[in-house]
Each structure stands twice: as C-alpha cells, then as structure tokens.
Amino acid sequence: MSQTPPPAGPPGGQPPYPGSPQQPGPPQYGQQPQYGGQPSYGGPPQQPGQYGMPPMAPIQGMPQQPYQGPPQGTNGFAVASLIFGIISGVLLSVIFGIVALRQIKQRNQGGRGLAIAGLVISGCWVLLFGVGLIIAIATDDEPSRDASGQVTETANVRPEKLKVGDCVEKVDTEGLIRNMKLVPCSGPNGGEVYAVFELPAGKWPGESAVSTVAESGCSDRWDALKRKVEEDSNIYYLQPVEASWSMGDRGVTCLVVPK
C-alpha cells in the first residue's frame, strides 16, 4: 500500500490554506500583554484630568453650627443694669441684667460682662441691706431703766416698745413712724405715753375705722385718768397701718404732747 506524501507548503512558513488560524507568537518587546476581563485594583477608575480626594459626606447626627461674626455693638440693657447697680437700684438692675443676657445671646451683641457686673453689684447691695437690718435689730435693745421703770438714758426704740410713763424727744405728726427717741421724763421732752391698748382682732377694717377707734380710746382713757397738765397740751396717738396689721400689730399708743 503506497502513501502519498503531503503537499509541500509554500515557502516562507505561510499556512497552506487561506483563512487558517494563526499561531500566537511571543509578545513584542516594549509592550505589555493585554489580559481581558481582569478587574483593576486600587478603587474605581478616575477620569483623566481629575485629581484629589472625593467629597466628604456630612456625618449624620452632628448639627451644623452657623458662623457668627464679631459682636454687633453693646447691649443697652447691659449698660443700664450696671448703672442702676452702682446707684443701688437693685430691682431695675436685676431686671435689666436678665433681659440683657438673653438679648446678647440672641442678637450676638457685646456687654455680657457689664450685665454680670450689674447683677453682682445688686447682690452686694442686698447683702449690705440685710446686714444693716440685722445690726439695727440687734442694737434695738431695751432702754436703761431705774427701779421704778423710768428711762435713765436716751435710746431709739420702735413704737410698739413704748410703755406707759415713757417720754419721747418729739412726736412726728407726718409720715410713717419707724423709730422714736426716748428721753428721761425728768428733763425736757416732747410727749409722754399715758396709755397703751389693743384693737380687736380681725380683718383690716380700713385706716379711717382704725383712726376713729384709736382716737376714741385715747380720749376715754385720758378722761379716766383725771390728770392735770401744767401746760397746754394735745392728745396724740400711734395706730397700726395695714402692713403692720397683717403681721399681727393691733397696738395703739396714746401720748399727751405739749403744744
């Protein structure tokens, strides 16, 4: 059996038939081999000509604080608070100071230190008034008296501490009387206490009603004494006011006062 040799291929290594597959040759130098379908590494591809970091998304739950510029002038209430604090206008100073602190925060104004200073000074005034009141009460002791109860030295007392037989330097017939000056009855004086009595308890009856009862009570008690005075005199009385009535003051003090 004979074998027929395959036809010889054309010279130059070309395939014998057109369209036959080419054998892949080695890659040419200076070029990178291409691998299809492989993902790239290092994040998503960037467009040519774009550099830098991607924009940061805001963090959820963190409030964005608006920018506030420099203070817009000094708050007027802060200045007023300091001024009234200096001149002992405590009530106005406190009110203006509180209003100023609120407005300064809302309006981005200056003057916070002035408002605080006004409040501090007002607090100092309140403390000073309190200390003065305590000292006044502590020093308002019973006056010195002899064995018979007569005052032997000059002393300042509140009207409710007056007793029968006490003499005062003078009687102020106008305004609210807070203190009276006791003097020995053996010397010159401006009036003598001859009776002290209490009004009935109850609601405040009114100034006119209190005055009527006090005047009638003092006149009746003077007539009952059947006392004669060396010089022409008048009857004067101290009565409670509405404010002291609410605190339990019902006392009426009767004095005979030289004209």
Rank of each mutant, 00 (worst) to 15 (best):
A201F: 07
L238Q: 04
P26D: 15
K228M: 00
W204H: 07
D166A: 03
S233D: 04
P184K: 10
G97T: 02
V164E: 11
L162T: 05
Q106I: 11
E192V: 11
T154R: 11
E207Q: 13
S148D: 12
P258Q: 00
Q103K: 15
G42Y: 06
M1K: 09
G217Q: 09
L238K: 02
T139W: 05
Q38D: 08
P33D: 13
L128Y: 11
K170S: 15
W245Q: 04
T212Q: 15
L101C: 03
Q22M: 05
S148P: 02
G123P: 01
K105D: 02
P70Q: 11
G113F: 07
G113L: 10
I135R: 07
P6Y: 04
G49N: 08
S122E: 05
E231V: 14
P240D: 01
M180D: 07
E169F: 12
G85T: 01
P188M: 07
D232S: 13
E153Y: 07
P48N: 05
G85D: 01
P24R: 05
L91D: 03
F129H: 10
Q31W: 04
A209R: 05
G248Y: 02
Y236G: 04
E215A: 14
D141C: 11
G217I: 08
G191T: 11
P54V: 01
A117E: 09
M56E: 14
V241T: 12
G36L: 08
V168H: 13
Q109W: 09
Y35K: 00
M1E: 14
S246L: 10
Q38L: 15
V99N: 03
G12V: 02
E174W: 12
N234R: 10
I235K: 13
P11G: 05
P44H: 07
D140V: 04
G25P: 05
M56R: 14
M180I: 14
A78H: 09
N234S: 12
Q106Y: 08
A195C: 00
Y67A: 10
A117V: 12
I121E: 01
Q103I: 11
V257A: 00
Q50P: 00
A100L: 03
M1S: 14
V99T: 07
R221I: 01
A57H: 12
S93L: 05
Q23I: 15
R145Y: 04
K181G: 01
I121Q: 02
F84H: 00
Q38N: 09
P66E: 10
V241E: 09
M56N: 11
K170H: 13
P21E: 11
N189W: 14
G37R: 03
V164I: 15
T154M: 11
G175P: 02
D140R: 13
R250E: 07
